[in-house]
Amino acid sequence: MARNIQSLERAAAMLRLLAGGERRLGLSDIASTLGLAKGTAHGILRTLQQEGFVEQDEASGRYQLGAELLRLGNSYLDVHELRARALVWTDDLARSSGESVYLGVVHQQGVLIVHHVFRPDDSRQVLEVGAMHPLHSTALGKVLSAYDPVAHSEVTEADRKAFTPRTVTGEREFEGVLDLIRARGWACDVEETWEGVASVAAPIHDRRRLPVGAVGITGAVERVCDDGELRSELVAAVRDCARAVSRDLGALRF
């Protein structure tokens, strides 16, 4: 029988001790209860603290269970939380790019639009929150397919329909597109879903670098592209926005 790892056993004992009711314990209490030297106990606590499983109260120096433990059992990020966090940044992206902004997450076999900011002109527009977009042809969908393993398995099993002559449908070609997206950090869709429409998107990551969604802009191909290439300042603006939202999620605490 394989030997158990002692420090893991001790860490588990500490977590159980701290979980025993709503309380904070000092280092000496923890060490003496578990029969450990203070130095040993402190080393383990510090490691747990770095992983977010334990938090130290600044004022008293006492330890308590950390937010990361709650998140383990409830790891799914609420899409409405995502929208609330993204609101300021997506508004600013719409203003700086002059295009409409969409925020999407993987849902069943597609992209669920969870947030939409109108293009900042006075034209009549309809809120598209709740709409589903395809995974394999839109910029949002391709970003999610490239970064999220769940989206990837959905998209490879799905029937990749050609919406326009430019839609990429072949498996090897599509995998090549995803490789490029991972290398560059963003995806585009130039008339691959809708004629005359182009979009750019980038991934949003949470604190643990897990992909939780994608943000992008969509507009007329004449405005979004220049000489058949995506305008680099728009790509930069989308990536800035995605990074800003990711940073905001990193600060997320229960």
Partner: peptide, 17 residues
């Protein structure tokens, strides 16, 4: 800004229900 019309022109609709 010259007048309130100029300010109105700055106003942007982000969403409408």
């Amino acid at each position: 800004w010259p007048d309130t019309d100029a300010l109105r022109a700055n106003w942007r609709r982000a969403a409408e229900w």
